[in-house]
Amino acid sequence: MSEFFKAELKDRFLEYALERSDYFQIQTLYDEFLRPNYSLEYVQKLIMEIKEYDPNLLDVMGGNGMDIFMLASTPSTEDFLEDGGFMNLYVKEEEKWDVFLSQLSTGPKLTKEEKKLLKKTTTPTLKKEKTLLIGLIAAVAISFLFTLISIFKETLLEPDYVPADEFERRIEQLREQYILENEKLQRELLNTKQTLDSLENKD
């Protein structure tokens, strides 16, 4: 199930609780929203995620051999939904990813001081470091390009049908790869900067 669908379901659970003025069984949510394609355990999982985000969004009671048996809204439920609920959190998270990906596409920018330092230093060691750095950035860019082309080829151009969940999973893998490669690039940039600083101090 996609994060979008999960966020929408959590908001529906909260809206349903808000509409009622009494406690109701978790089974009611299952019958109302997820039967028969999902299990009651999945409803419990979503309720736990709501509680982990903010314990005050729902009043939860155990019973009948279950940790989550009865539910009711709280004063915080209405305030949270008025602020946009979990769907608003999902949108904000997506916007963060958009900003992150756009920053990746522009590449790292050197400060004025770093540019001056690069111009001053003409030693073979620094030239080698600069070449390695450019090669690293190019390798990350090429790797990303091939990954992106592969995903879109498999999901959009191939005749085989790809379920939405599988597409979401692949996009998530791409995002994770972005993060790992970006962290690796940051480490390389830091090492290069330290080398430049040490050589500048020697001069």
Rank of each mutant, 00 (worst) to 15 (best):
E32Y: 08
G85E: 10
S39K: 12
E15C: 10
T121L: 14
Q44K: 11
L34P: 07
L46A: 03
N88A: 14
V43T: 15
D54F: 08
D79G: 04
L132E: 03
L18V: 02
K128L: 03
L29P: 11
L126T: 02
P108T: 03
E78L: 00
L34V: 01
E78A: 11
T74H: 12
T122A: 09
L117Y: 00
L117H: 02
I47K: 07
P36N: 08
K116Q: 12
F24W: 11
L81N: 11
K112T: 05
D67E: 11
Y16D: 01
K112A: 09
D22T: 13
K120S: 09
K128R: 10
G63H: 04
E32C: 12
E49S: 14
S73W: 00
K130Q: 09
T121E: 15
E82V: 02
T123L: 06
L29W: 07
R12T: 04
T123N: 11
M70W: 12
D67H: 11
K115R: 12
T106Y: 07
E95K: 13
D59Y: 05
K120D: 07
K109A: 13
T77Y: 06
K112F: 10
R20L: 15
G107D: 04
L29C: 10
A17R: 04
K45I: 05
E15N: 13
F80M: 05
F33N: 02
D83Y: 04
Y38E: 08
K51T: 08
D22A: 12
P108C: 00
D79H: 09
T111I: 04
F100C: 02
N64E: 14
F24V: 00
K96E: 14
L126Q: 07
F24G: 01
L126C: 04
D31A: 08
N88D: 13
N56H: 08
L133E: 11
E94I: 09
M87N: 09
F69A: 09
K112W: 09
Y30G: 09
K127Y: 00
R35E: 10
V43G: 06
M70Y: 14
T123S: 14
I50W: 09
Q103H: 13
Q25E: 15
P124H: 01
